[in-house]
Amino acid sequence: MTDRPAAIDIIHVRKRFSGRVEALRDVALSVPAGEIFGLLGPNGAGKSTLLKILLTIIRPTSCKGVMLGQPIGHKKTLQKVGYLPEHVQFPEYLTGRQVIRYSAGLSGICSKFCKKREEELLGLVGMNEWANRKMRTYSKGMKQRIGLAQALVNDPELVFLDEPTDGVDPQGRKEMRGVLKSLRDQGKTIFVNSHLLGELEMVCDNVAILNQGQVVKQGSMKELTACDSAYTIEFVGELTSELKASLASKSQIKLGEQSLRVERECAADIQVIIDQLRAKQVVIEQITREKQSLEDIFLETVQGTKTGGYRK
């Protein structure tokens, strides 16, 4: 985690639905301001429930903490928040432009500012040409683009995106990533819920993994992916038995035919091994750094657990 102030800082978040399903169990989360935060988790882990609690759509059983410096549930704070829900359904009688205006109006934005802003946003999401068509004529991807535009219409400090790339084509996804990065560069905080781990990995600064209503892992992308990194050194020729014995004595080194794998070491530590090999005239052909992907971390974390909420 970074030392930036937290846009969201919550503890003891619990939500129990009827039927004894505990969607969230004592969740604690800190989202640094000005960064892209990803919340991962299998289906039914409680990701959307957590997000809806922050946005006052669901009432928590208990929740302590702040969002943008105000207690959770403070309605006025939502003026500085944007939201794109999962499986968003806009009224079909509205045009894309009217959806953006509706969202702006509910945020209390005057029409003068809104008109200027809607043109910018329609351009940003590439929907200028389609802005005056009814929502019923839109594809799923186009609805998501309009959804993103309406989430940004109030120039929010904090944006919640629930599965933002759902139904969006690869080109659209790339554009979406660009939009998220540019929002971050403007100092905004982005909170993304997604199943698409590859997408998140490309943009997120911090992630948390939620499983069965609990945060099981949380940290910066660098910290999480670096802790399980490894180096593979491929060489040509044979190692001397003396060198083999020396390398084999170190537990983090695994010897192969024409390679050796060094686990959980940083770049500085690897230099000693390179020096050892070079001292014996071993020809190093290639050194590669293997980082654990977000998917690996995710699967490792949730492996063996059931999907869905925790049932008492």
Binding site: T56, I57, K75, Y83, H87, V88, F90, L106, S107, Q150
Partner: peptide
């Protein structure tokens, strides 16, 4: 019924309106 449909109501409820 249409207003309270999942995917529609969330946007209105997430705004600073009681």
């Amino acid at each position: 019924p249409e207003f309270t449909r999942a995917g529609t109501i969330e946007i209105s409820l997430s705004k600073p309106v009681s």
